[in-house]
Design a protein around this nucleic acid. Structure first.
Lengths: 337, 337
DNA sequence: CTTATCTATGTAAACGTTTACGACAAACTT
DNA sequence: AAGTTTGTCGTAAACGTTTACATAGATAAG
């Protein structure tokens, strides 16, 4: 425990606690001379204000929470990077919580955060979540919330997303133009907002190119990687006509590669793959992977910016502040014709 | 702000604040009947204790800090995963700080943390750090510290590492046995403890196989990825006899791939590559990458376990509690002969 | 010379908890 | 019947800040 408190400083300087506190905050009420005395001693004794006392008194924690499904994922790693960058610049601290896409964890986490531990929250909802009462409860409580990537429309607040519908359309069109006629769609969960939008783009592209939409070609891969790979293998065995895969999330693209590897289906000759991904090594895969790449780092920065802006100005966050950034389709060998 | 406080509950129940507080903590001093009344109302009003008031009074924050060089890195992502898992189980919150390998940031972060914001700290030191006065200062202050992967020997505390010397030896031997005679060693910084150990393993393996150690074949890649790739290209051009690369950290292995790609040097025919890496897609690279894989998730869990154990028992952490886990060499095509 | 204004500082309450101490019955002991 | 224990609850202080209000001296205005 750090024993250097305002009281200690005040005693040694023969000043009142109030004056010391004010001096350290550069208050106009205290003379330049005492300010300097105070600051000198504070520096000498390595004084650091007790964050909890300050937070309690001011009802401000200078802390934001980040709630994400997983951290071992290039997209979320980059987003955290952006968030931490903005938070640091503004003197905010970042608490991190991982839901592992489980509804119960998300509920438990939001329960903790009701206690005023954070001034605001950045969130990507868990795929399992279908009920949002916990978020509603939290929202009427203190912390401001900004969603990023995986939003919850039931809450009236801002969000930072990408042009998911358009990207879904483009990815599908790209496969079709490369010659695919039976395109599987892999998503993490049917309830997710981004999953729905990307799928709608997928469906629209099929329609516009006179291809049928088959529900049997849609796979929801909510499990661990091995399990997902198994399910993709099963799907490809059961429907050998599949000649294209659109993975709406990174790890499903990877699972698709493993599935094709075990089934000895050549990419891109026999089957083409495109996937949402922020993998830095996408270009080094065998074969290099065609990706829809989201501006993950910028999304994190944008979301944190909106959140901190609202907190500092003590203003509610409006849905109108939402931002939609553009993803980029990077064509590589996995979809070469 | 959550308006439900102990005072509010006390008023509505016609009890004192003390009794309500005790009831919620299942104190033996309060009758079963009132306990039930209190808990019922607390649940109904969705009461959540104010974390800051509690922390201030008890001088315990139930929060640990994690200080890492970067988050967009499979090793650290997995480690965070393990840390968060253990922390969650014990009811601890996790603050995250990213140094970007910059000394100044590390100093600034440790300064924040002097204020009692965290009960303990898990840390992987920045590669730039050569002075450790800031860590010494922090260490004599409150928080317990456990290092993982990148330790600072100047501080007497526990650490969680892997058998870096052995791994360095094995990786180098593996290259030699695959036929390499001129092996480059890529590290992030010469000052890093793990870098030194891995390098010592590298040197020992060279010696044991009667190969000379050349300083010119050692490259310190402390920069961004593009910059590192450039430097590797330069090295390979300047020393065309290099037929093996040992990358002591993941992103340098990737940079090596890009370098070989631009130089049109075939892996593994012309040059073989082995690297420390936790990439889930190592097996899917072209060619698949031979890796030394650290048990990152377990390391995170182990480090958090030591830290939380010490905090809960209010005991100082001893160097003797240090743990050394084993990495695994996974041979793949990038070192095939 | 009195009153008002300004400057620099101090006093004390407040934030929401936790907890040492005390109070007061009721239930036991002898 | 007097003393002792036990069970239940309240009072109040404390954690380290911040800040509204008070104070005292100095200067300016009338």
């Amino acid at each position: 425990m750090n024993e250097v408190t305002l009281k200690r400083l005040a005693q040694e300087l023969n000043l009142s606690i109030a004056t010391v506190s004010r001096a350290l905050q550069d208050s106009y009420e205290v003379s330049l001379q005492t300010k300097m005395r105070v600051k000198a001693l504070a520096a000498e004794l390595n004084y650091e204000p007790n964050a909890y006392a300050s937070s309690l008194r001011r009802n401000i924690s200078k802390t934001i929470g980040v709630v994400i499904p997983e951290v071992n994922n290039t997209f979320f790693s980059l987003a955290i990077n952006g968030i931490e960058e903005i938070a640091r610049q503004s003197g905010y601290h970042v608490l991190i919580y991982i839901t592992h896409d489980e509804y119960e964890r998300e509920v438990a986490i939001t329960q903790y955060l009701t206690g005023g531990r954070v001034d605001g929250l950045l969130m990507s909802v868990a795929s399992e979540s279908r009920e949002f009462a916990h978020l509603q409860k939290l929202h009427v409580s203190k912390p401001a919330i900004v969603f990023f990537d995986r939003v919850c429309q039931a809450i009236a607040t801002a969000s930072v997303t990408t042009n998911d519908y358009e990207s879904g359309y483009l990815a599908t069109q790209h496969l079709i133009e490369a010659g695919c006629r039976h395109i599987a769609y892999l998503q993490v969960s049917g309830t997710l907002s981004i999953g729905r939008l990307r799928m709608q783009g997928y469906q629209a592209a099929l329609r516009d190119h006179d291809l049928p939409y088959e529900e049997a070609l849609v796979l929801s891969g909510d499990g661990n990687d091995e399990c997902n790979t198994e399910r993709i293998i099963k799907l490809l065995r059961h429907r050998p006509e599949i000649d294209g895969i659109f993975a709406s999330v990174e790890h499903l693209a990877i699972s698709s590669y493993y599935a094709c590897q075990t089934l000895d289906r050549a990419i891109p000759a026999a089957i083409k793959v495109v996937g949402f991904s922020n993998l830095g090594v996408a270009a080094l895969l065998a074969p290099s992977l065609t990706t829809i790449t989201q501006p993950a780092y910028e999304m994190g920065k944008a979301a944190a910016g909106i959140l901190l802006g609202a907190i500092e100005k003590k203003r509610a966050i409006l849905s109108a502040q939402s931002v939609v950034l553009k993803s980029e389709l990077v064509a590589r060998r996995s979809t070469a014709s």
